[in-house]
Amino acid sequence: MALNTPQITPTKKITVRAIGEELPRGDYQRCPQCDMLFSLPEINSHQSAYCPRCQAKIRDGRDWSLTRLAAMAFTMLLLMPFAWGEPLLHIWLLGIRIDANVMQGIWQMTKQGDAITGSMVFFCVIGAPLILVTSIAYLWFGNRLGMNLRPVLLMLERLKEWVMLDIYLVGIGVASIKVQDYAHIQAGVGLFSFVALVILTTVTLSHLNVEELWERFYPQRPATRRDEKLRVCLGCHFTGYPDQRGRCPRCHIPLRLRRRHSLQKCWAALLASIVLLLPANLLPISIIYLNGGRQEDTILSGIMSLASSNIAVAGIVFIASILVPFTKVIVMFTLLLSIHFKCQQGLRTRILLLRMVTWIGRWSMLDLFVISLTMSLINRDQILAFTMGPAAFYFGAAVILTILAVEWLDSRLLWDAHESGNARFDD
């Protein structure tokens, strides 16, 4: 018995066209964080690309023209004298008006014999932002004059995390709450300039795509075929072959399989920071003279006294001054041990922890910024005066060393310790 099946006739004509040209192939790229070699397709503007294995951002879609970056830099340069030299806060102490600005706080630190601690604050609040705007201006002028731009481009990517104007702005709020127990506070004209400078700096850093600047100024022929001998440069993120001198053909720094002496430098910085954190938390970090009496505060006791007036601000200072430094030390110690013992479990967790400490590390400088600003506000000789204690130097040095330890660690070593050939990683 035959089955009668109805015929289905399409209502619209289906047209099949042959592909007349070869589909576009992607360029081969190595991930600078996990060293995976993959094919990167062509990316349009405002599109980002991520590593298929570790999800690290390979290409950032946010990109401004150099002219727009230069305009932002010149605007920031105009704001800087007002943000640093004009009063941020006014207080009335014992019937006398006192003005506080950024430069005055750094000068008070240096004047009291601790120039190293003052230079830490100076670099993060004044030096690094000033280098940022002058570097962008150098790129703008240098591109037109045919100057060598490689050193500036190499420095810009590392400079971003040292620009800490946003953290200093939080420190202004913390210092205001600490001082309000002794005097009446009012915002100064410099505060508005400083807030504007923070906003412009944040926007500029978020749109400063150094890798795209490398592509514009020093374009290189990408690798179009897969080759395990391809290496990625950690300076400019170019994937290719080393030249005859073993250097990256684009930025001219040595092109090595792994960062040289990464573990040794990381261990040295980490152990030194552990040693410095002990006096930083045991010795007094601030000293207040009130009517001839002397009151010393460690980091913890200062947080407890701050909690009596504002528990939320005390929580912020606790996280930045105690929780973050010790968390960074514990995480980095764990990561280094996992590399030495070739741990194969929990790779995803370790990668996330490394990215976390990379982002939060700079916030530990908050305590030094609060001390710097408070020193310029309260300084009335023996009637009422505020000065920093010996722990300030140890704390600042420990924070900087932990930042350097994270920067010096080559994250690809975590993958080397893991089993080879993993296309995915999980716990």
Score class of each variant (00 low, 15 high):
residue 2 A to W: 03
residue 3 L to N: 12
residue 4 N to P: 07
residue 5 T to G: 08
residue 7 Q to F: 05
residue 8 I to N: 09
residue 10 P to K: 04
residue 10 P to I: 05
residue 11 T to R: 08
residue 13 K to Q: 10
residue 13 K to S: 05
residue 17 R to N: 07
residue 20 G to C: 07
residue 22 E to R: 06
residue 24 P to T: 07
residue 24 P to M: 07
residue 26 G to Q: 06
residue 27 D to T: 09
residue 31 C to S: 00
residue 33 Q to M: 10
residue 35 D to T: 03
residue 37 L to K: 07
residue 38 F to S: 04
residue 38 F to N: 04
residue 39 S to F: 11
residue 40 L to T: 07
residue 40 L to E: 05
residue 41 P to F: 05
residue 44 N to E: 08
residue 44 N to G: 06
residue 44 N to M: 05
residue 47 Q to K: 04
residue 48 S to V: 11
residue 48 S to Y: 12
residue 52 P to T: 09
residue 53 R to T: 08
residue 54 C to Q: 00
residue 54 C to Y: 00
residue 56 A to Q: 04
residue 56 A to H: 08
residue 57 K to N: 04
residue 57 K to Q: 09
residue 58 I to C: 04
residue 60 D to W: 06
residue 61 G to Y: 12
residue 61 G to A: 09
residue 63 D to G: 13
residue 63 D to M: 15
residue 65 S to E: 04
residue 66 L to D: 12
residue 66 L to N: 10
residue 66 L to K: 04
residue 67 T to V: 12
residue 68 R to S: 02
residue 72 M to V: 06
residue 72 M to D: 04
residue 75 T to C: 13
residue 76 M to G: 03
residue 77 L to D: 04
residue 78 L to G: 07
residue 79 L to E: 03
residue 79 L to I: 09
residue 80 M to P: 05
residue 80 M to R: 00
residue 81 P to G: 04
residue 82 F to C: 05
residue 84 W to R: 13
residue 86 E to S: 06
residue 86 E to K: 03
residue 86 E to F: 02
residue 88 L to C: 02
residue 90 H to T: 08
residue 93 L to D: 00
residue 94 L to M: 03
residue 96 I to V: 07
residue 97 R to E: 03
residue 99 D to N: 08
residue 100 A to D: 04
residue 101 N to V: 01
residue 104 Q to F: 04
residue 105 G to Y: 01
residue 105 G to H: 01
residue 105 G to A: 13
residue 106 I to Q: 04
residue 107 W to P: 08
residue 111 K to N: 11
residue 112 Q to C: 07
residue 114 D to M: 14
residue 115 A to Q: 11
residue 115 A to N: 04
residue 115 A to W: 03
residue 116 I to H: 15
residue 116 I to T: 11
residue 117 T to S: 06
residue 119 S to M: 01
residue 120 M to I: 06
residue 121 V to N: 10
residue 122 F to R: 06
residue 122 F to G: 02
residue 123 F to T: 02
residue 123 F to S: 02
residue 123 F to Q: 01
residue 123 F to M: 03
residue 126 I to T: 14
residue 127 G to C: 08
residue 127 G to Q: 03
residue 129 P to G: 08
residue 130 L to S: 14
residue 130 L to F: 11
residue 131 I to R: 00
residue 132 L to E: 02
residue 133 V to K: 05
residue 133 V to S: 02
residue 133 V to L: 14
residue 134 T to C: 12
residue 135 S to M: 02
residue 135 S to I: 01
residue 135 S to E: 01
residue 136 I to D: 02
residue 137 A to C: 09
residue 137 A to Y: 15
residue 138 Y to D: 01
residue 140 W to L: 15
residue 140 W to D: 09
residue 141 F to N: 01
residue 145 L to T: 10
residue 145 L to N: 05
residue 145 L to I: 13
residue 146 G to K: 09
residue 148 N to T: 05
residue 151 P to V: 05
residue 153 L to V: 11
residue 154 L to S: 03
residue 155 M to T: 07
residue 155 M to S: 07
residue 158 R to Q: 15
residue 159 L to H: 03
residue 161 E to W: 03
residue 162 W to E: 01
residue 162 W to D: 01
residue 164 M to E: 05
residue 165 L to R: 02
residue 166 D to S: 15
residue 166 D to K: 15
residue 167 I to G: 03
residue 168 Y to S: 05
residue 169 L to D: 01
residue 171 G to K: 00
residue 174 V to L: 15
residue 177 I to Y: 09
residue 177 I to H: 06
residue 179 V to G: 08
residue 179 V to R: 00
residue 179 V to K: 01
residue 180 Q to A: 13
residue 181 D to G: 03
residue 182 Y to K: 02
residue 182 Y to W: 05
residue 182 Y to V: 14
residue 184 H to Q: 07
residue 185 I to L: 11
residue 185 I to R: 01
residue 186 Q to V: 11
residue 188 G to D: 10
residue 190 G to T: 02
residue 191 L to G: 08
residue 191 L to F: 12
residue 191 L to Q: 04
residue 192 F to W: 13
residue 192 F to G: 07
residue 192 F to P: 06
residue 194 F to D: 11
residue 195 V to G: 10
residue 195 V to C: 12
residue 195 V to D: 01
residue 195 V to H: 07
residue 196 A to P: 05
residue 196 A to F: 14
residue 197 L to Q: 03
residue 197 L to Y: 13
residue 198 V to S: 14
residue 198 V to W: 15
residue 200 L to S: 10
residue 201 T to K: 12
residue 202 T to M: 15
residue 203 V to C: 14
residue 204 T to D: 06
residue 205 L to R: 13
residue 206 S to E: 09
residue 207 H to L: 13
residue 209 N to W: 13
residue 209 N to F: 11
residue 209 N to Y: 09
residue 211 E to L: 15
residue 211 E to W: 11
residue 212 E to K: 15
residue 214 W to V: 15
residue 214 W to N: 14
residue 215 E to M: 14
residue 216 R to M: 08
residue 216 R to I: 10
residue 218 Y to N: 08
residue 218 Y to D: 10
residue 219 P to H: 14
residue 219 P to L: 12
residue 221 R to P: 13
residue 221 R to C: 14
residue 221 R to T: 14
residue 221 R to H: 13
residue 224 T to Y: 11
residue 227 D to Q: 11
residue 227 D to R: 13
residue 227 D to M: 15
residue 228 E to S: 14
residue 229 K to M: 12
residue 230 L to Q: 14
residue 232 V to T: 13
residue 233 C to K: 00
residue 234 L to M: 11
residue 234 L to N: 11
residue 234 L to W: 14
residue 237 H to P: 04
residue 237 H to L: 13
residue 237 H to Q: 13
residue 238 F to C: 12
residue 239 T to R: 04
residue 239 T to C: 14
residue 240 G to M: 11
residue 240 G to N: 14
residue 241 Y to Q: 13
residue 242 P to G: 10
residue 243 D to M: 11
residue 245 R to L: 12
residue 247 R to H: 10
residue 248 C to P: 00
residue 249 P to Y: 12
residue 250 R to K: 11
residue 250 R to H: 13
residue 252 H to N: 05
residue 253 I to R: 02
residue 258 R to N: 07
residue 259 R to D: 15
residue 264 Q to W: 03
residue 265 K to Y: 03
residue 268 A to K: 01
residue 268 A to S: 11
residue 268 A to G: 09
residue 269 A to E: 01
residue 269 A to M: 04
residue 271 L to E: 04
residue 272 A to D: 01
residue 274 I to L: 15
residue 281 N to H: 04
residue 282 L to F: 15
residue 283 L to G: 05
residue 283 L to E: 11
residue 286 S to C: 06
residue 287 I to F: 03
residue 288 I to A: 01
residue 288 I to E: 00
residue 289 Y to I: 07
residue 289 Y to Q: 02
residue 289 Y to A: 02
residue 291 N to I: 15
residue 291 N to T: 15
residue 293 G to M: 12
residue 294 R to V: 05
residue 296 E to C: 07
residue 296 E to W: 10
residue 297 D to Q: 03
residue 299 I to K: 00
residue 299 I to G: 12
residue 301 S to D: 01
residue 306 L to C: 02
residue 308 S to T: 13
residue 310 N to P: 12
residue 311 I to Y: 13
residue 312 A to Y: 14
residue 313 V to R: 00
residue 316 I to F: 07
residue 318 F to G: 14
residue 319 I to F: 14
residue 322 I to G: 12
residue 322 I to Q: 05
residue 323 L to D: 01
residue 323 L to I: 10
residue 326 F to N: 06
residue 327 T to S: 15
residue 328 K to S: 00
residue 329 V to R: 01
residue 330 I to W: 15
residue 330 I to H: 10
residue 332 M to H: 06
residue 333 F to G: 11
residue 334 T to Q: 13
residue 336 L to F: 08
residue 337 L to K: 13
residue 338 S to Q: 15
residue 339 I to T: 12
residue 340 H to Y: 11
residue 345 Q to T: 13
residue 349 T to H: 15
residue 350 R to Q: 10
residue 355 R to W: 15
residue 355 R to E: 11
residue 357 V to K: 06
residue 359 W to C: 13
residue 363 W to M: 02
residue 364 S to P: 00
residue 365 M to E: 07
residue 367 D to V: 00
residue 367 D to L: 00
residue 368 L to K: 03
residue 369 F to W: 09
residue 371 I to N: 00
residue 372 S to Q: 05
residue 373 L to H: 03
residue 373 L to I: 08
residue 374 T to V: 11
residue 374 T to R: 00
residue 377 L to K: 00
residue 379 N to C: 04
residue 381 D to F: 04
residue 382 Q to T: 07
residue 384 L to H: 01
residue 385 A to K: 05
residue 386 F to M: 01
residue 387 T to Q: 06
residue 387 T to I: 14
residue 388 M to I: 05
residue 388 M to Y: 04
residue 389 G to V: 00
residue 389 G to H: 01
residue 390 P to A: 07
residue 390 P to F: 07
residue 392 A to W: 02
residue 392 A to D: 04
residue 394 Y to L: 02
residue 394 Y to T: 02
residue 396 G to M: 02
residue 397 A to F: 06
residue 397 A to C: 05
residue 398 A to Q: 05
residue 399 V to T: 11
residue 400 I to D: 06
residue 400 I to Q: 08
residue 402 T to F: 09
residue 403 I to N: 03
residue 403 I to A: 03
residue 403 I to L: 14
residue 404 L to W: 07
residue 406 V to T: 06
residue 406 V to H: 01
residue 408 W to F: 13
residue 408 W to I: 04
residue 409 L to S: 04
residue 410 D to H: 00
residue 411 S to N: 11
residue 411 S to L: 10
residue 412 R to L: 00
residue 414 L to D: 08
residue 415 W to M: 10
residue 416 D to M: 09
residue 416 D to K: 12
residue 417 A to T: 10
residue 420 S to G: 10
residue 424 R to A: 07
